[in-house]
Design a protein around this nucleic acid. Sequence first.
DNA 1: TCATTAAAGTTAT
DNA 2: ATAACTTTAATGA
Length: 198
Amino acid sequence: MVIQENHLYSAGAECITYKSGEYIFQEGDFPHFYYQIITGQLKLNAYNEEGKEFILSIVSDGESFAESFIFSGQLYPMDAEALTECTILRLHKNNFLKLLEASPQLYLNVCKGLSYHLHNQYTTLHRNSSPKPADRLLGLLSHLKNSQQEKKAYSFLVPLTRQQLASCTGICVETAIRTIKTLERQNILKIKDRKIYF
DNA sequence: TCATTAAAGTTAT
DNA sequence: ATAACTTTAATGA
């Protein structure tokens, strides 16, 4: 959890639920709020000229998202769409900034969060510049697994569909499927009931 | 080697 | 039921 929920509530935050498929915001919208997920999963995504989706990030329980735009004041360059039913706390930009002014500690934590996120974005960008789909997928899987404590092989149940893995790495689904099977043959991951264990 | 297209089977809502 | 996801195969850049 990024910011204590009671702190957000006392600063004037409201709790909103979104059904799967609903937009929290869309590309071109002005950023009015700080968002923090209580429960649920959503994606930040954009579409290219041919209409192909690219998933920039998948965010879930306890995480904040898109807070950088509060500071820059730029319009959202992507959509935020609920993947599951989502319960989200949102705090108006002005109140959020007041909250930060009142607490240097909180300010620093938010900075850390932003920096951490920026680091992720850089490594993701680098990873997705690889011409080899296996490198992109493997890099993504390692990154996802990083957020769990257990480091043993095959201990991580990949929480994304093949479609989503493809959209996160900029390859097509069919290639993602074939690559994943190749990785299975190389014992780099396991597949059981269509679920991917890495 | 990978994207694209098509077609068909499977799972989730 | 219907949509979304998964898989295989053929073709072409």
